[in-house]
C-alpha cells in the first residue's frame, strides 16, 4: 500500500517520467475544437482564389493542425525531448529527400521538354 502510494506520488511529481502525464479533458476537447475550426477554415479558404497563395495557405493551416496533433494528442509537448528529436529528425530527412529529387528533376528538364514537344507533334500529326 505504502509502496503503491509512493509510486503514485513519484508520478505526480513527474520528474523523470513525463510519459505518464495525464492530459486534462478540456485540453483534449479544446484541441479537437481547434482542429475542426482549422479544417472548416482551410475548406473555406480554398474557395477563395488566392492564386499563388493557395498552396502556402493550405500547407500553413495543415502544419498548424499537425503541430497541435503532435504536441497535444501525441503528448510530444509533455514527453521526453528525445522523441521530439526523432520525429523532427525524420522531417528533416524527408525535406532532404524531396530536395535532392527536386534538384535531380531539374537536370532532366531539357529532356522532358523535348519529349513533350515530340508528343505534341504526334498529336498535331493525327
Amino acid at each position: 500500500m505504502t509502496a503503491a502510494a509512493s509510486t503514485e506520488h513519484d508520478h505526480a511529481e513527474g520528474h523523470d517520467h513525463g510519459d505518464h502525464h495525464v492530459l486534462p479533458l478540456w485540453l483534449l476537447i479544446g484541441t479537437w475544437a481547434a482542429l475542426m475550426g482549422l479544417t472548416i477554415f482551410t475548406v473555406t479558404a480554398s474557395t477563395f482564389h488566392l492564386g499563388a497563395f493557395d498552396l502556402p495557405v493550405a500547407m500553413a493551416i495543415a502544419t498548424i493542425k499537425a503541430t497541435l496533433v503532435m504536441l497535444i494528442f501525441m503528448h510530444l509537448g509533455f514527453d521526453k525531448s528525445f522523441h521530439s528529436l526523432l520525429i523532427y529528425g525524420s522531417f528533416l530527412f524527408v525535406f532532404l529527400f524531396i530536395s535532392f529529387v527536386w534538384i535531380d528533376r531539374g537536370q532532366y528538364q531539357v529532356d522532358i521538354n523535348e519529349k513533350e514537344q515530340q508528343e505534341i507533334a504526334i498529336d498535331l500529326g493525327q
Binding site: T42, S46, H49, D54, I61, A62, V69, F73, M74
Partner: peptide
C-alpha cells in the same frame, strides 16, 4: 493511439494536397 494520430496526421496533409486545389 500514437499510431492512430500519425494516420490522422498524414490525412491532414493529404486532404488539402489532393482535394483543395484551385
Amino acid at each position: 493511439a500514437l499510431y492512430w494520430h500519425l494516420v490522422d496526421l498524414i490525412w491532414i496533409y493529404l486532404f488539402p494536397l489532393l482535394y483543395l486545389i484551385n
